[in-house]
Design a protein around this nucleic acid. Sequence first.
DNA 1: AAACTATACGGAGACTTCCTCCGGTTCTAC
DNA 2: GTAGAACCGGAGGAAGTCTCCGTATAGTTT
Lengths: 179, 179
Amino acid sequence: MRADAQRNYDRLLEEAKQAFIVHGTDVALEDIARHAGVGIGTLYRHFPDRYSLMNAVFIRELDALNDRARTLIAADDPADALFVWLRSVGAHSAMYRGLSSAILAQSDGRMLQCKAQLRESGGALLARAQKAGAVRDGIEIADLLKLTSAIVLCAEKNPEDRKTFDRLMSLAVNGILVG
Amino acid sequence: MRADAQRNYDRLLEEAKQAFIVHGTDVALEDIARHAGVGIGTLYRHFPDRYSLMNAVFIRELDALNDRARTLIAADDPADALFVWLRSVGAHSAMYRGLSSAILAQSDGRMLQCKAQLRESGGALLARAQKAGAVRDGIEIADLLKLTSAIVLCAEKNPEDRKTFDRLMSLAVNGILVG
DNA sequence: AAACTATACGGAGACTTCCTCCGGTTCTAC
DNA sequence: GTAGAACCGGAGGAAGTCTCCGTATAGTTT
């Protein structure tokens, strides 16, 4: 990669991240390009579509979540560790309006890298919690991540109620039926 | 309302419903107008924006769900009645790709009528199930509807896996934790 | 039934955003 | 230096949303 290309690539990534946080992932790509000081053509050459850019931005952010999972794998309470981690995932997704929606749309594999990493980290926590008999068998990490994303989505569509995420997560964890 | 206006209003509603089912609620409004045999201006006069049209379409569909709720309120198992109804709500939302997303976005009140009716019908079922001691206290119908919509959203983004809705609903009902 | 007026119609067009294409520029290796 | 591969950038086509206003018509009045 030529030095100028690399420079533009990095600036685009940084500007995209900021723009996603401030305006959500629906922000106009032209704005990102302008702020990065490049033309829209350059943006599209590096990132053929919006999701490719999103994937590139978020894949970097996952390190924190993966680290968190590695720490939590040694926590005392395996089930609690899983839930703490899921809440972290939710909190991260919530930083970027629109991200959870994109993660959910897995029919096309544009953000596959991101999702694969999450499944790996979360899968270990889930397996441990199940082995300890604290979490039902038959539950799969993919479904837990979907549910988490869906709940983030709810929460981000109800910005006036800050507690939405916590309430719905607790609903999912404890169930609706009386235990 | 003038006779021609009423005629166009009805045709638009019918065409919109069909278009929403076939192409999802993101369908181009121009297409709806063309199929209804009217100009785009006429569509926008009757329905100032897309959500106003969606609300008008779906408010009619709610009769079936309200009827279902009235029947279920007399069912033997109060908790089961609630879940059966929630599944019906989900099945209905799933007919129209994009509807659940719109229902979730409650920050603006454009589809308020629809949501108010659902809360009323579901609230009665929930109250009965809670009174019977089968469903946890503290749970609110608004949250259950949000969770249901969120799960529909997941399911509609995973069209290759037809069981997604059922799996996630069962997760929410039974919870993640063991007993 | 003719004239009148409030109401409704419809599509041109301004605006926005996405994405492509290609002439011109710049970096790098020799 | 210089050749040419790699890269840049913005004009512009396509699609969609929504507005505006001249034209057409339904319903009323005489």
